[in-house]
Computed example of a mutant assay.
Amino acid sequence: MYRERLVGTEVRSESARRLQQLLLDYHDFRHYKADHRLLDSALTVADWQARRLKQTHRDLYQHSGYQGGLEFLLTDLYAPANMTRRDDNIDRVFPKMVKWLPDHLLDTLSGLVELNLITQQLDLELAELLDERDMHARTVTVEHYCEVYRASQKLEQRKHQVMLVADVGQQLDRYVRNRTLGWLLSMSRTPAEMADLSDLHDFLHRGYSAFRKMDKVNVLIDRLVTREQQVMDNILSGHPEPFVLPDDL
């Protein structure tokens, strides 16, 4: 819907150019995915993986100090769904973002966009691999999942995906320690609603609130990355219980 606005916006820094290209790539992929015959299967795969993540990290989810931040990190960022309006609004306000935001914030936004793009590309690839083997996404088993995971042509992207979660989480943690950001989010709620940007504002405020409540975010992220890297190793090596991890992870 807003592709012309993305293309027509003049950018003057490498950070702005990177964000512009990622938003264009994400915009085009979202429209490609929306018309894909396996769209429902891709969404089912995303739901399956979101449930798996919560099971693998259930001890962290049950920790009162981490639950909100982890929910935001793994649901809004790692396995996003039903975010079409939010994503369209990011495209819509891109000209203002590159005009008013500093490069370090544009870099963080680039990480968020890249994470969403890679996640959805990988979900669609798994749906396609399941379909090639006449496996139904709605009845996928751990064995089926691991089989198509090992057949993936995008294993390097999967490794990068995990590291993006860590990078984005660490950057968000740095920003929420600035109390001015919380004040600005509170003051901008009404203008956001008037500009039909309430969904984007809610997304930002939810992330701010979740991370603001957490201590030692670096410890949480280190555990997430270590565990997910072990899960990947388990799957690729054919471990019979790839999602069962040692107690010390």
Rank of each mutant, 00 (worst) to 15 (best):
Y2N: 15
L6G: 05
G8Q: 02
S15N: 13
R17A: 14
R17W: 11
L23E: 00
D25V: 04
D25E: 14
H31K: 10
H36W: 07
H36T: 06
H36I: 06
L39M: 06
L43Y: 07
V45A: 04
V45I: 13
W48A: 08
Q49R: 10
R51I: 00
K54Q: 11
K54M: 09
R58N: 05
R58D: 06
D59S: 13
L60M: 07
Q62S: 13
S64F: 08
G68T: 13
G69M: 14
L70F: 06
T75F: 03
A79F: 09
N82G: 06
T84A: 15
R85S: 13
R86C: 10
N89F: 12
V93G: 04
M97A: 15
W100C: 01
H104K: 08
L105S: 11
L105K: 13
L106Y: 01
L106E: 01
V113W: 05
V113G: 05
E114N: 12
E114C: 07
L115P: 00
L115Y: 02
T119K: 05
Q120H: 02
L122E: 00
D123I: 01
L124P: 02
L124F: 02
L126S: 10
E128N: 04
E132Q: 15
R138Q: 12
T139Q: 10
V140G: 02
H144W: 01
C146H: 05
C146S: 11
R150I: 00
S152N: 01
R158G: 00
K159M: 11
K159V: 07
V165T: 04
D167F: 09
G169T: 05
Q171H: 10
L172R: 09
R174T: 12
Y175V: 09
V176E: 07
V176L: 06
R177M: 11
T180P: 03
T180C: 10
L185Y: 01
R189M: 10
A192T: 12
A192E: 12
E193H: 02
M194P: 00
L204G: 05
H205S: 13
H205F: 10
R212D: 10
K213M: 03
K213E: 04
V217G: 06
L220P: 05
I221T: 02
E228V: 07
Q229P: 06
D233I: 10
S237V: 05
E241G: 08
F243Y: 15
V244H: 13
D247K: 15
D248A: 05
L249W: 02
